[in-house]
């Protein structure tokens, strides 16, 4: 019986931490840019409302497409294609990550992320 109680406290603690983190991480800025970060360094920054297609890198490439206020990686030659399958991001704090190329595409500013993050 006592074990069950501790289990429930543990689970409640983890869920509480998740809720607090989510509230804390909710972005509040306004502006709307697409940040391209490689090896932890910002290598480019584009406005989210200007449509464009750029190829990041040469031998190891990711094609970044910004269209209708959304950014997506449409093609890449990384092994797992997680970046492509992530789909389009548009809200502050959302990001597309390509671990094999140590690349991150992050949205900053713009509309507040009011979408329930769990239901994405």
């Amino acid at each position: 019986m006592r074990k069950r109680t501790l289990d429930i406290i543990l689970i409640a603690g983890v869920l509480l931490a998740a809720a607090l983190l989510w509230l804390w991480l909710r972005p509040v800025e306004a502006g709307g840019s697409v940040l391209v970060i490689q090896d932890g360094q910002e290598i480019a920054r584009y406005a989210l409302h200007e449509d464009r297609t750029v190829t990041i890198g040469e031998a190891d490439y990711n094609v970044l497409e910004i269209q209708n206020g959304q950014a997506a990686v449409t093609d890449a030659n990384c092994g797992d294609h997680t970046c492509v399958r992530t789909g389009a991001v548009s809200r502050a704090g959302e990001s597309i990550i390509c671990l094999p190329h140590r690349l991150e595409i992050r949205i900053i500013g713009g509309a507040d992320s009011s979408v329930d993050i769990v239901a994405q």
Partner: peptide, 23 residues
């Protein structure tokens, strides 16, 4: 490790989702 590989802390945005899904 993913944050270390990327040299960026923004992976923490995944953390709330992962905590709930992990539970």
């Amino acid at each position: 490790v993913a944050a270390a590989v990327l040299g960026s802390a923004s992976m923490v945005y995944y953390l709330p989702v992962l905590l709930v899904s992990g539970t």
